[in-house]
Every structure is written in structure tokens, then in C-alpha cells.
Computed example of a mutant assay.
Amino acid sequence: MNALDYFNARLEATISPMDYLKLAQVDPDKHFLIDVRNGPNHVRNLTIKDAHVIPQQELHNRLHEIPKDKEIIVYCWDVWCNTAAKVAKFLLERGYKVKELTGGIAAWKEMNFPCSDLSQNVNMSDNCGC
């Protein structure tokens, strides 16, 4: 693979926080954002505003919640985490159109973009699955 092919593939498979925020403001119904992070509640209580929380470990049982008619954007912790890439691959294999949010929740928070605090949500599973 040459450099041009690499960067074209990378741009096709990912979206930056800034680009996602702009697109979501223009057409909020086009995308379905999923927080796929695993881990205990106290470390994942902050999520991107309007994200659907479907941890990777619950994905098989909750696949019916993910619409096929929208572009799916998945994110995890940071650039060192590959959970979102694993979920993206899983969803792509099942016919979804998917991109990974680069930098995960860490990049989003670093840019001071809108977040939601889920610490009051009693329905969050505290089973890490790690």
C-alpha cells in the first residue's frame, strides 16, 4: 500500500471530533454515535453528548438497537484503545456503514466539546468484562 492509498483508507474509516461535531450540527439525524467503552461505571460516567452507550461486551445482545440506515460512529477511550476499531470491524462485517471517532472520548474532552454525565443513570452495567 502506498502513502496515498493509506491516507485515503484512513480518511474513509475515521472522522475527527471537529468534523463529527460540524456534521452533527448540520444533519443530526444522519449519524448514530455509540460509546463502546468497556469498564466500570465510575470511569465511564462521562460520555459524548447524545451518544448511545453500548459497551463492546454488550454489542451482540444489543445489535437490534443500531439502525442500518444511518452512518455509525464509534468511539472508545483514546488513541491507544482499539475497542472502537474492533466494534467497527464487527459492524462492517454485518453491513453497517461505520467510522471511528479519532482520539476517542479523550480527544473530545480535550477540545471541550459537549459531554453528558451519566453518573445518575442507574441502568448502566458495572460489569467491566475486561
Rank of each mutant, 00 (worst) to 15 (best):
residue 35 D to H: 00
residue 61 N to A: 15
residue 37 R to A: 00
residue 12 E to S: 15
residue 25 Q to G: 12
residue 24 A to L: 04
residue 102 T to S: 11
residue 33 L to V: 00
residue 33 L to K: 04
residue 41 N to Q: 12
residue 114 P to V: 09
residue 35 D to C: 01
residue 19 D to E: 14
residue 67 P to A: 10
residue 70 K to Q: 15
residue 2 N to T: 10
residue 14 T to S: 12
residue 34 I to T: 03
residue 121 N to M: 07
residue 60 H to M: 10
residue 102 T to E: 08
residue 90 F to K: 02
residue 77 W to Q: 04
residue 106 A to Y: 03
residue 22 K to I: 11
residue 40 P to K: 14
residue 43 V to D: 09
residue 54 I to C: 05
residue 67 P to L: 10
residue 12 E to M: 13
residue 66 I to T: 03
residue 110 E to Q: 15
residue 20 Y to C: 04
residue 67 P to Y: 07
residue 19 D to V: 04
residue 127 N to D: 13
residue 98 V to G: 00
residue 40 P to Q: 13
residue 38 N to R: 11
residue 30 K to Q: 14
residue 73 I to G: 00
residue 119 S to P: 06
residue 45 N to L: 09
residue 112 N to Y: 09
residue 68 K to F: 11
residue 97 K to F: 06
residue 64 H to Y: 13
residue 1 M to T: 10
residue 4 L to R: 13
residue 28 P to W: 08
residue 18 M to K: 13
residue 56 Q to N: 07
residue 1 M to S: 14
residue 21 L to T: 04
residue 21 L to P: 02
residue 10 R to C: 08
residue 95 G to N: 07
residue 58 E to F: 14
residue 49 K to T: 01
residue 26 V to F: 09
residue 118 L to V: 02
residue 57 Q to I: 08
residue 17 P to Y: 04
residue 118 L to R: 12
residue 126 D to R: 10
residue 82 N to A: 07
residue 91 L to D: 00
residue 14 T to C: 11
residue 26 V to C: 08
residue 82 N to F: 07
residue 122 V to P: 01
residue 111 M to W: 07
residue 70 K to I: 01
residue 23 L to Y: 11
residue 68 K to A: 10
residue 109 K to W: 01
residue 9 A to M: 12
residue 11 L to D: 15
residue 93 E to A: 10
residue 18 M to T: 13
residue 118 L to E: 05
residue 83 T to P: 03
residue 88 A to K: 05
residue 10 R to K: 15
residue 36 V to L: 03
residue 91 L to V: 04
residue 55 P to I: 05
residue 2 N to P: 10
residue 120 Q to R: 12
residue 130 C to R: 08
residue 21 L to S: 05
residue 61 N to S: 14
residue 104 G to D: 02
residue 39 G to M: 05
residue 67 P to M: 11
residue 29 D to V: 03
residue 58 E to Y: 11
residue 30 K to V: 01
residue 120 Q to T: 12
residue 99 K to P: 06
residue 44 R to H: 06
residue 86 K to S: 10
residue 23 L to W: 07
residue 68 K to Q: 15
residue 38 N to I: 04
residue 14 T to E: 14
residue 90 F to G: 01
residue 70 K to N: 09
residue 57 Q to R: 15
residue 60 H to G: 03
residue 107 A to C: 08
residue 113 F to P: 00
residue 99 K to H: 06
residue 111 M to C: 07
residue 46 L to Q: 11
residue 90 F to W: 01
residue 11 L to S: 14
residue 91 L to I: 05
residue 67 P to K: 08
residue 81 C to A: 06
residue 2 N to D: 15
residue 55 P to V: 04
residue 25 Q to I: 07
residue 71 E to N: 09
residue 121 N to I: 13
residue 106 A to H: 08
residue 83 T to K: 04
residue 61 N to L: 15
residue 99 K to I: 04
residue 50 D to Y: 12
residue 71 E to I: 01
residue 20 Y to N: 02
residue 46 L to E: 07
residue 25 Q to R: 14
residue 75 Y to V: 00
residue 120 Q to H: 12
residue 90 F to M: 02
residue 41 N to E: 12
residue 120 Q to K: 15
residue 96 Y to S: 03
residue 64 H to I: 10
residue 14 T to R: 14
residue 92 L to C: 08
residue 108 W to S: 02
residue 114 P to K: 05
residue 63 L to N: 10
